[in-house]
Design a protein around this nucleic acid. Structure first.
Length: 546
RNA sequence: GGCCCCGUCGUCUAGCCAGGUCUAGGACACGGCCCUUUCAAGGCCGCGACACGGGUUCAAAUCCCGUCGGGGUCACCA
């Protein structure tokens, strides 16, 4: 084919393509103050889908049913999104062409939609009293009939309205669901799902005071914000026919729907909920993670409440020192997979490979142990320098290191982090290794270990005393040389490792377990090492005497 | 109860649409052994699933029907 298109045609074709290819997704959190693991997983899928297709990801705040305290609660949620690196193109703080992004401020368009529905005959004013409606319902239930509202108090004419109002009644607006026909949901994940209109209820879409309900607000706002793909949790699948009915009544072009399965409880198929913490705490792995977090929180004097600080809430992970990338990677694989072996995804790789087709249909349960294993892997990939930076704030909050840190901190901390190696899985784990910061005369000893390694063995005190005097004359305080020194000592004494090293470890760290012994001594330094040995020796001697 | 969705190792999953290469693969967890100054880590080995029953077919995890089980939803919540 030769010759170019006319440039105007070309640009029209281009803009048509751009428009039809444009993808806009949204996540609509309710400002409750914290982000739920399951919610974030859904948000992640929305974000990935939009980014993958070069589209926009919108954050809309569903604040219609909450009280005053929206601002601080919202701030916490936005903070969570920022931490996770899920940036939004439109929404709070950044705004955008479809303002406002708060559902509560869009009531005008909602009310207008209600009027349009009424005018189109897709909805009617219902003057029933709640108890009257409820009575019909109960009667149907008792007779084991499927309930459908009789529309006895529906107003079809102005005269009806006047009559009901003269009785002092007020009206809600209900959907006028057809008696026949089907509503088809063409779901990107679940395929074609059919609903019979006859089994759908005449749902209320607007209250007497004019405020509207979720099903209406949601689809109206989605349309108003030109959302092309509604990716949301499975529990909304049953709401979708109602929303489609509303959309049709309003003459909207339908967005594509994709209902992702919900995130289930650890080892169960039930939906994960922040309400059932007590139950989850009975799960071994969940409890372990929770305890770990609590221990860290305590040491850094973090005020926590069970409501907002537990492994169901995203904040928890940030506060105890998880890497956002690890959490996101884990969440990605909760209900989605690329193939039979790929587990590690950089953001770039996620964007390249994510697709709704490969989202699973069955719910996936949240597995704290697997999350931790992702975190571990991500942590160990980090260079020491970065680990140090991650870990330092925990020492500062625990008041073991001042802020800003003194100059010598960096080398010592680097040595500690290096010696700790893979023992530090999450940043807060550094608090397990704070003995290096404890004053020599304040070091506390693990009683059992002390008895077993120092008090009880007959040769422990004499051997340690002897080795102490050798250490006192050691000039080269490197781990390598210390190891050689100990080996020489062992040879001279004709003893094995086990006879001296445990006593040395307990004396210098107070514990039976820890890093490599020689790295430990090197970090501790000569002065502290000797002081601690002296103290341990005198404690051991006096306890043997008594 | 009506409607709708779902069902592969304890958990996350691959395989299912286009039946054979599946005595069902990987990962996490778990168990054992090795390494080792302790704890981690690492190495090796192991345990472990197609919900059930019919059918179609030379052949079924895969297709069809039924059963069972789990979940969601039926609000003047979102």
């Amino acid at each position: 084919m030769s010759g170019g298109m006319h440039s105007a045609t070309k640009s029209r074709v281009f803009s048509f393509l751009a428009l039809s290819l444009m993808v806009r997704t949204r996540f609509a959190p309710s400002p409750t103050g914290y982000l739920h693991i399951g919610g974030v997983r859904t948000a992640l899928f929305n974000w990935l889908f939009a980014r993958k297709h070069g589209g926009q990801f919108v954050l809309r705040i569903d604040d219609t049913d909450v009280g005053r305290e929206v601002a601080p609660a919202l701030e916490a949620i936005l903070h969570g999104f920022r931490w996770l690196g899920l940036d939004w193109d439109e929404g709070p703080e950044v705004n955008g062409p479809f303002e406002p992004y708060y559902q509560s401020q869009r009531s005008e368009s909602h009310k207008q939609a209600v009027q349009q529905l009424l005018a189109a005959g897709a909805a009617y004013k219902d003057y029933s009293k709640p108890e009257e409606y409820q009575a019909e319902r109960t009667a149907a239930e008792q007779e084991k009939r499927n309930f459908r509202y009789s529309r006895t108090w529906a107003a079809w004419t102005n005269e009806d309205e006047a009559r009901f109002e003269s009785e002092g009644r007020t009206a809600v607006v209900r959907l006028k669901m057809p008696e026949e026909g089907q509503i088809i949901v063409d779901d990107l994940i679940r395929g074609r799902v059919e609903f019979n209109c006859a089994t759908e209820q005449d749902s209320v879409v607007a209250r007497a005071d004019g405020s509207v309900l979720y099903n209406l607000a949601s689809i109206v706002d989605d349309h108003g914000m030109q959302i092309t793909h509604v990716i949301r949790s499975e529990e909304h699948l049953s709401n979708t026919p109602r929303q489609i009915f509303i959309a049709q009544g309003l003459g909207y072009e339908l967005p594509k729907f994709a209902h992702v399965p919900y995130v289930a409880e650890p080892s169960s198929r039930n939906k994960l909920s922040k309400r059932k913490l007590d139950k989850y705490l009975k799960n071994k792995e969940f409890a372990k993670l929770n305890d770990l977090g609590q221990a860290i929180a305590q040491q850094i004097s973090l005020a926590t409440s069970a409501e907002t600080f537990n492994p169901v809430i995203v904040d928890f992970y940030e506060q105890v020192g998880f890497l956002a990338d690890a959490l996101v990677n884990y969440l990605l694989l909760l209900g989605w997979s690329l193939d039979d072996h790929t587990e590690d995804f950089s953001r770039q790789q996620m964007l390249e490979s994510f697709s709704l087709e490969r989202v699973n249909k069955a719910p996936a349960s949240f597995d704290p142990a697997k999350l931790v294993s992702f975190q571990d892997r991500y942590m160990q990939k980090l260079p020491v320098k970065q680990k140090v930076a991650l870990v330092l704030p925990y020492l500062q909050q625990a008041e073991l290191v001042s802020s800003p840190p003194p100059c010598e901190t960096s080398d010592k901390l680097k040595a500690i982090v290096e010696a700790a190696g893979e023992r530090i899985k999450i940043a807060g784990d550094i608090l397990d290794y704070t003995d290096f910061y404890t004053a020599d005369d304040k070091l506390s000893y693990d009683e059992k270990a002390f008895a077993k390694r120092l008090t009880k063995p007959d040769d422990a005190v004499p051997l340690l005393t002897k080795f102490r005097s050798i250490l006192a004359n050691t000039l080269d305080w490197s781990a390598a040389n210390l190891e050689q020194t100990l080996k020489d000592f062992m040879e001279a004494e004709g003893i094995g490792f086990g006879q001296i090293i445990h006593a040395l470890r307990v004396a210098t760290t107070g514990k039976a377990v820890g890093f490599g012994m020689f790295e430990t001594l090197e970090i501790l330094g000569k002065e502290s090492t000797l002081a601690r040995i002296d103290r341990a020796l005198s404690l051991a001697t006096s306890s043997i005497a008594s």
